[in-house]
């Protein structure tokens, strides 16, 4: 079964440039239904108001970090099964372990390439 590229994707990063880069890379992968948020709180509000099939989030944001957003998503009855990929420069073991324990679907360390992004999206959407 081909991967459904019509799902809504929410990308979350406090660097507008990074949002633009990820949006363009997703567009090249034929994901055209993409929304943006610049921190965890804004993302959570959009997730609760919308219907997203994938979240791609940075970690290091204020006032709500990506890890805190992930915990909120996993603790929300309606959102808890939403695939969640962390895309971050935080590469310490304790960060990866904390994200995994919080229920992250996959973890991409910056800087990353388009191939890695595609590979992880395919894995979390169950088409690897």
């Amino acid at each position: 079964m081909p991967m459904d590229k019509n799902i809504s994707v929410l990308i979350v990063d406090d660097y507008k440039t990074m949002l633009r880069i990820i949006r363009n890379l997703l567009k090249q992968l034929d994901f055209n239904n993409v929304e943006e948020a610049t921190d965890g709180q804004e993302a959570l509000a959009k997730l609760r108001a919308g219907n997203f099939g994938l979240v791609i989030s940075d970690w290091n944001m204020q006032p709500m970090t990506g890890l805190d957003l992930l915990k909120e998503v996993r603790g929300d009855q309606r959102l808890k099964d939403t695939p969640f990929i962390m895309v971050t420069a935080e590469s310490k073991t304790e960060n990866v372990v904390a994200a995994k324990q919080a229920g992250v679907s996959n973890y991409i360390v910056k800087p990353f390439n388009a191939e890695t992004l595609r590979d992880k999206i395919e894995k979390v959407l169950g088409h690897a």
Binding site: W59, G66, L67, E90, K92, N95
Partner: peptide, 12 residues
């Protein structure tokens, strides 16, 4: 304030 902030240290 949170685990996310405590672990946020940026690029290595």
């Amino acid at each position: 304030r949170t685990e996310g902030e405590a672990l946020a240290s940026g690029p290595q």
